[in-house]
Amino acid sequence: MSDMEKANILHQLKSEFDVPPELLEMLLKQISNKDIKENFARITSGLTIEDSYKHIFSSLPWIKNISGLHQAQAEKYKKNFQIPDYLLLVENSQKNNFPLLIDVKYVKGAATQCSIIPKQKHTLRQYAKAHQQPLLIAIYWERFGYWTHNCLSHFGGKKQNKIDWQTAICNDLSHLLSDYTFRIDQPFYRKTIFPKPADHSNRSHARHKKYGNFDSIFIGKSIDKLSKEDELFYSIIIDANFNAKTVTTEDHENHVCLIEEFSSQPSMIKTSQWLLTITQLMNIKPSLEVNEMHVLEMARYVIVDLMHRLGYSPSYNIPPNKNACTDQLFELAYKDTIVMRDYLQG
């Protein structure tokens, strides 16, 4: 077992158990590679992003399986092949599944460019070619809280191994995985009823900092046609992504009625980006499950249902930089669909 594989196992141990510092230090001493040992925190931050990727994207409907490819690899094979992080099975427009290799990259802090070591780029490509499976690079841009999926052929520069965030977003293929982007081009409204006096007792529920716990909520694209929503999770989903503008506040004898407007300006929001903000707002781990259901899967369902009910349709980005990789993936995912027609005509 290589020292990097030992570091990966130790990371998984830390993720699942409360490991005392002295035990962690003792286990780290069993890693002989000085660079890996001294950079364990940096290495494990990247592994945490890989774990987050798995939980975020396994909640999407077209992903039928995500398998981690962390197999032990003999040193003699690494000269020609590098194993990517994940193998996905993705459902296409024909309701069939196709395999897709994913290698995860993490662009930390304020950085706006992702680089791949040229040798790594070559060995990843060789692995994908040998297995006859398409490959995408999944990049997490910490500065924007945003995931993109790009072909290796989207990387440029002197050594063809760099991509900046603008190029990555313009050529993002995340929608192949049902990571839809919604265009909010018209405002919508929420009416919330709060009982009086303000009730702040149940701190496990979503609540307003001034008016306390909700009694009921109503949502719609017209103030005059708001539908009652029994599940308060819809309100949390809205607050995770939109800033509210108060329209009216009515103070009645037994309750307060607050009407708010959302998104008076056009905005674009991607499902994975929305899911990330939910984990931050609710301060939860992406792996959290409640009653044997993944919280992010529940949130994704609510997002898609809310957008459908409000009449906002998903959009599918057509990359300006078309190449053999994008040709293959659009054919695999969207054969005989309007999206494929738009790609060919775009």
Rank of each mutant, 00 (worst) to 15 (best):
P195R: 05
D342M: 11
T192D: 11
F262A: 00
L276M: 09
Q186W: 04
N96W: 06
D3E: 01
S58W: 03
E260G: 00
L176N: 01
K191H: 08
M282C: 08
I9N: 10
L100M: 08
D342E: 15
G212H: 02
Y140Q: 02
H131M: 10
L344W: 14
E50K: 07
H175G: 03
K64Q: 06
K78V: 02
A74D: 03
I193H: 08
L176W: 02
F182T: 03
A41H: 13
I66W: 03
F262N: 01
K191V: 04
I223A: 01
D3G: 00
P266R: 10
S178K: 00
F81N: 08
S174I: 03
H11L: 09
A168S: 14
V90T: 05
L310E: 14
F242R: 01
G346C: 11
N97T: 08
Q30L: 14
L173F: 07
Q345P: 04
C170D: 07
Q12E: 14
K14H: 04
P134H: 03
L226A: 07
N39K: 06
K34M: 11
N243D: 13
K108W: 02
S315R: 15
S15F: 04
S315M: 12
L23T: 13
H208L: 00
Q186Y: 07
E250Q: 08
A72G: 07
F98Y: 11
A299Y: 14
S45R: 07
G156R: 15
N283Q: 14
N321Q: 13
N33L: 00
N8T: 06
A130Q: 11
L329C: 11
H200P: 06
T123A: 04
I236G: 09
I169N: 12
Y316V: 05
S313K: 15
I219V: 02
P118N: 12
Y77H: 13
T181G: 03
I303Y: 12
I36W: 09
T279E: 01
T271L: 03
R341S: 15
E253F: 06
G156L: 05
G311T: 11
I139P: 04
F98L: 05
E75M: 06
N241D: 04
N291R: 12
E50S: 09
E75I: 09
L100N: 05
H122E: 08
E297L: 14
T192C: 13
M293G: 13
L288A: 10
I31R: 00
L101M: 10
E142T: 06
H55I: 13
S267I: 10
P197L: 09
Q132L: 09
N161P: 03
H294E: 11
F182R: 01
T337V: 03
N241F: 00
L13I: 06
D327N: 14
I338H: 10
D327S: 09
L258W: 03
Q280T: 11
K196N: 06
P195C: 10
D336W: 07
I184F: 02
N8D: 15
N323V: 03
Y86Q: 04
R203H: 09
D103K: 01
Y77T: 13
D179I: 02
T123D: 12
D85P: 05
H122V: 10
N241Q: 01
A299L: 11
L281R: 10
E22D: 13
K196V: 10
V302T: 15
I217N: 04
K245Y: 07
K121I: 07
L23M: 14
Q113F: 05
G212C: 05
V104S: 05
L135Q: 04
Q126S: 13
E38H: 12
